[in-house]
Structure formats: structure tokens, C-alpha cells
Amino acid sequence: MSFLNTLIPTRNGSSEGASATESRRPHYEVSETEGSYDLTVYLPGVAKEGLEITDEAGELTIIGKRNTRLPEGSTLLHREVSDAGFKLVVTHDETVDAEKIVAELRDGVLQLKLAKAESAKPRKVVVA
């Protein structure tokens, strides 16, 4: 199956028997407004404490640890998603002001506002 695994893209980039260290890529949406890029990331089962957002050298990394382990003494009957956490890496250029990134997590949805740098905003040139 190793050949097939390399040929066919899997949604999570992981096969069955995923360990806790593996992660899946969350579903996300990007939209652009005049002053910012808005990123919506769906992270079901991730609490504020399990969320880690870093921005380094034009790479925005979002890591969400899921708190969805089964309670003690329970038996699993059916499962469609793994316990593995989420990991999303988004690259951006210098038009994003890394100092002005605002994040809000609510009901498993992360809203990120990436403010555009002053230099990237359209500027009107006045003709003298």
C-alpha cells in the first residue's frame, strides 16, 4: 500500500492508526478586506488552552490540540475522525504586519485577522 499512499492524496495526510503526534489539516477559508486578510479555521474540539499560534519568517503556524479523548471506562463503537490534533501552516509575504495579528476562538472556530502592513495599502499619489 505504500505506493498507493504516495499516489493518492489522503485528506489528513495520515493513514489509519494515527498516533497522538500526528495531525490533520483543518478546513479553512481566507478572505481579503481593504485593511486585512481574514482567516477562518475550523477546529472542533480545540479549547483556548490547546491552541498555539506562531508567526515566524512569513510562516503562520496554527497548532490545535484536541481534548476529545474518550472518558475512562467507555468503549468506542464507531469513529470517523481521529483524536489527532490540527496543524495548519500558512505562508504570507511582508505585506502582513506580524505585530498586528488578532485571533479569536469561539465554538471551535478560529478567526484570525492579519492586518496589512502600511506599505501594502494602496496609496494615493498627489500630483503637484
Partner: peptide, 19 residues
């Protein structure tokens, strides 16, 4: 996606419904 599990008293259904 949903998940189904049980313990001695209850059956549980867990569904991923962000936002």
C-alpha cells in the same frame, strides 16, 4: 463526522459541529 461510544450507563454520540 460523528463518533459513537458507550459506558455502563449511557450511549454517547459526539458530533463535530464547529461554529
Amino acid at each position: 463526522p460523528v463518533e459513537l461510544y458507550e459506558d455502563k450507563q449511557n450511549t454517547y454520540v459526539r458530533a463535530e459541529l464547529p461554529g
